[in-house]
């Protein structure tokens, strides 16, 4: 690990000022950053610890909820406002990592967590995300865990978050502060596909800090569900996951959310799948159709081709379980 300076800030304005310096990285839970520093992937000259900032509250926000960026995954998952009204978020959080990691990991950090692509995490290997123009060995190398959706010829790194998949399904909004003041970024715009610039992963600008996330009330939030498929029973990243939410009335789906995880370069909203559901009764047939629509345009590779079928089934199953549960 490269030697670095460490400091702790207690006020947001001071923390933001520090962000203008070169080589600064903000530290929240540390579950991504410290790992990557140990691997030599991240080499900040200064680490500014944000954990003392007053950004940890979880509270009602009108009909919705506001979640501080420093609230831990555990706090969010078990908070009564979340567990009852937004089951998909609670389920997604609890399907991730381990209790120890969830006790450290923050909401803001989770939104910014970086890919688990093995080539990205090995500084001795080329990687366009780490070193622009160096190439992407995952394209034709070992790519079992890589993405099939939102990919480019520069990068097929999977976005690893469970939480972000649920937040996107819930139409959450990310609130950030920077030199230019506050702005609100809808989840759908927060993460960006790699295109030709895979180093750019989010809409967050240099020096900005995520302060909180708001999750609105919605007709489908309460009827929501997260299904995660992985290589072992716990403590593994998703091979495929789905956050689904349905507003059903009069036996017909009024609105739907279908978001895929583990198969795309960012939390992947499958609007075509949602379109298959809306206006129809919630039946197995429409769930299967939604699954098929969700992976339309997928680009499979040597070792991850199975994800096309798996993602299809994950969506259908999540919807079936959701309707069965209700």
């Amino acid at each position: 690990m490269k030697p670095f300076a460490y400091s702790r800030e207690t006020g947001l304005d001071h923390a933001l000022a520090r962000g203008k310096e070169d080589g600064v990285r903000y530290l929240a839970g540390g579950t991504t950053l410290i790992d990557l520093m140990r691997l030599g992937v991240e080499e900040p000259s200064t680490v500014v610890d944000l954990r003392a900032l007053p950004l940890r509250d979880i509270k009602a926000d009108g009909d919705g909820v506001q979640i501080g960026a420093l609230a831990t995954n555990t706090e969010v998952a078990y908070h009564p406002l979340i567990a009852k009204a937004y089951p998909v978020l609670s389920e997604a959080l609890l399907s991730g990592a381990s209790p120890q990691l969830r006790n450290m990991a923050s909401v803001g950090g989770n939104l910014l967590q970086r890919t688990r692509c093995s080539y990205f995490r090995d500084p001795s290997s080329p990687c366009n995300k780490r070193m622009a123009g160096s190439g992407c060995p995952a394209l034709d190398g070992y790519n079992r865990s890589n993405a099939i959706l939102g990919v480019s010829s520069s990068c097929i790194a999977t976005h690893p978050s469970d939480m972000a998949v649920a937040l996107l399904a819930l139409d959450a909004v990310v609130h950030v502060r920077g030199g230019g003041g506050e702005r609100a970024v809808p989840m759908g715009d927060f993460h960006v596909a790699p295109g030709s610039t895979p180093a750019v992963e989010t809409a967050l600008q240099k020096g900005e800090i995520i302060t909180h996330v708001t999750v609105p009330a919605s007709p489908f939030a309460q009827r929501s569900h997260y299904v995660k498929v992985r290589d072992r029973a716990s403590y593994a990243f998703a091979l495929s996951s789905a956050a689904v939410a349905l507003d059903v009335s009069g036996g017909v789906v009024k609105s739907a959310r279908v978001v895929l995880g583990g198969v795309a370069t960012k939390p992947w909203r499958a609007t075509e799948a949602e379109a298959e559901l809306v206006g129809k009764p919630p039946t197995s047939m429409s769930f299967d159709a939604a699954g098929a629509a969700a992976v339309r345009g997928a680009v499979p590779r040597t070792h991850n081709a199975f994800k096309v079928e798996l993602a299809k089934r994950t969506v259908a199953r999540a919807l079936r379980d959701l309707v069965g549960k209700a």
Binding site: S118, D122, P137, G141, S145, D231, A233, S234, Y235
Partner: peptide
Amino acid sequence: DPRTSRVVTKDLADYHVPVHAD
């Protein structure tokens, strides 16, 4: 990696062993 003979799965996140839940 079949092209380089380099090990790709070289930590316990990429190389899975059973956890308690298994």
